[in-house]
Design a protein around this nucleic acid. Structure first.
Lengths: 203, 203, 203, 203
DNA sequence: GATGAATGAGGTTTCATTCAT
DNA sequence: TATGAATGAAACCTCATTCAT
């Protein structure tokens, strides 16, 4: 039925609007400082409507994370697709990660600060593994790079932790303004260290 | 006066008890889920007493961070003091960091999760730079190691970010149980990667 | 729309119920001793509902004053409307004021005691002039009476102060039970004094 | 014993210092906004010491009122002592009342605002009749004036209510800045009205 | 008597969530 | 399905008062 299709479309748009509003507001003000009514207002729906699409505020946060991570990961995937080696893909990933999140500073805060929810959050939602896809992809890239013989056969999980941990802390330092450094220069230096350390022909 | 001395001692003990209770409770339940009354109960003082020692809940959290960071940094400093080279000190630092925080799992959670508690904090307290001392010391170690000729003359700030970011994310992965790995093995692998990447005579 | 009309009506009733409950409770226990939860219970709404209609407790008190003053002033206005001279209106006003507030003793307390509750209010809300309308009307009556040639051309502001001050203190003495007098007799005596003046050789 | 005398003197001074501090602070900030610790600090005693001299904050307020009223009444009494007729004393009383309280504006607030404690206060302390002495003296003056044949034989209680009510409301209007009038002019006008009476054809 | 550290009861207000319309 | 008015639980912090020293 056409009617149903249109309705369905409308609903999907509404859901999407809510998520967008949630991401923007969470990023800007932090999870606890964000009121559902604010999100509803930005999404141009009633407060109660939010609860037709999401069980509660926690779920909305988790979905918001998921959307962001998926969106950015897909952008990254498509952009590194044309790189000729996995090593290049890996380094390109690093650069893109920094670029994508610092282009929208509130997303940098979102990722480096808000993502780390309270201990109770992890206990309450054991299935909450927001970075899993992201770090898995990173690990996969490391595996490929090793197979292609461009980095030494290190443990790929360890490599992924080093990579993600470094990117994440770099963004935190930048987002909180703790350090007064040029982000692009710092990024190059870090890539330099990681590659020169990791390359098979590093000598 | 003896009286004053005894009172002072009592007060120091009380303050300490409150901080300990705060750290434990914050770690367990998260900052926003922790009630002052819980902390007070654990510290065996009245609710109001907490406010004789700390201006408010925020300050209590910040002081708790500071105490933990200082305490652990001092332990680390004293333990690596006998290491003969800065490179050894650096790697020892890494191991001790992981050890000290995973020996007390709530501290691992405290550091890797609660420390990032929400942008609200960084916005409200721009002077809140809990890790400054820690990463500064790390950077100093890197400088020394470079001067001693044991790692290539990389940018020391970049090195510190890689080191701390990696340690931090490793603890997070461990604390949230996202990954099912042996912490000690993972740690060795990471150290392996970082050292083989960094050494001057890495070939 | 019918629906909206009904809802609006309901809301007006709810607002009114809250104000009534507030006046009664404030009068009975005093502003600082009155808990919002008590008011809510008396008004048969939830605590939070009070805050849908009033910004906070302070505003509720001020609105309550305003409502009472307006209500009583309107009653008085309509009742003195048929009096043939302004002098009669003026004296009638005096009697009605005493009557209206002593018929509902909690209102007498509200006006003579709670209204003066603490400088904090006057300092915090300089625009809080609860009696302005009331004394202005009183002053206007005095002007008219003078123009009609029934009292000497005294300063009207001074007259208003005498009238209101006397009525107010009379109610206070009555409400606090400090004096053991017949209110109606006292009222007559006061009116007698005010109209006839003090001096023996006034003729 | 000399010792005891000195100690007693010290204690009286301490009690007096506390009352003075209380009056100043209550006047300035209002009863509810005043903390016992502030009073103690101003009186240069420990918080607990206040409770050696006064049962609680309420009692301290009541004593403070009493002291002020007594002090001012005594000043007035001594100043009007040389007036040759009771009528002159009465009018002089009015002027002195206004003068004494407006010379120290915080006292004007204290008397016209803070004196009217909450309804519960009057219920809790039925013996709290702060103005009794004052209005009794006023009434006595009226009696004398009547006996001396200088005002008509009106009811003296009614006269006292008019006098005190007018003075009190005049001070309130002045203290809260509601009216923009010259206090001294207004005072003269009021006295004029009270003495000359309202009616044009009063004979 | 004097101290002041410690106590702990108490209340306003917010806001996630519900549910009658 | 959508609304948004209503709900009511929940907790930080203050400060009068106490009491061990």
């Amino acid at each position: 039925m056409k009617k149903n299709k249109q309705q369905l479309k409308k609903q999907i748009q509404k859901r999407s609007a809510i998520i967008d509003a949630a991401i923007k507001t969470f990023s800007l003000k932090g999870f606890h400082q964000t009121k559902i009514s604010e999100i509803a207002k930005h999404a141009e729906v009633a407060d109660g409507t939010v609860y037709l699409y999401f069980k509660n505020k926690d779920e909305l946060l988790m979905v918001a994370f998921d959307e962001i991570i998926n969106e950015k990961l897909n952008i990254i995937k498509s952009k590194i697709d044309t790189d000729t080696t996995s090593l290049r893909k890996l380094l390109h990933f690093f650069k893109l990660h920094v670029k994508l999140f610092t282009e929208e500073p509130h997303l940098a805060r979102f990722l480096s600060i808000e993502l780390r929810q309270s201990s109770e959050f992890y206990q309450k939602y054991p299935e909450f593994k927001p970075l899993e896809k992201y770090t898995n992809f990173l690990e996969k890239l490391c595996q490929d790079t090793i197979q292609e013989g461009n980095i030494k056969p290190f443990d790929t999980k360890a490599l992924a932790i080093i990579f993600y941990g470094t990117m994440d802390f770099l963004l935190l330092e930048w987002a909180t303004g703790n350090q007064n450094f040029s982000l692009s220069k710092m990024e190059k230096k870090i890539v330099d260290i990681l590659t020169n350390g990791l390359r098979i022909y590093s000598s």
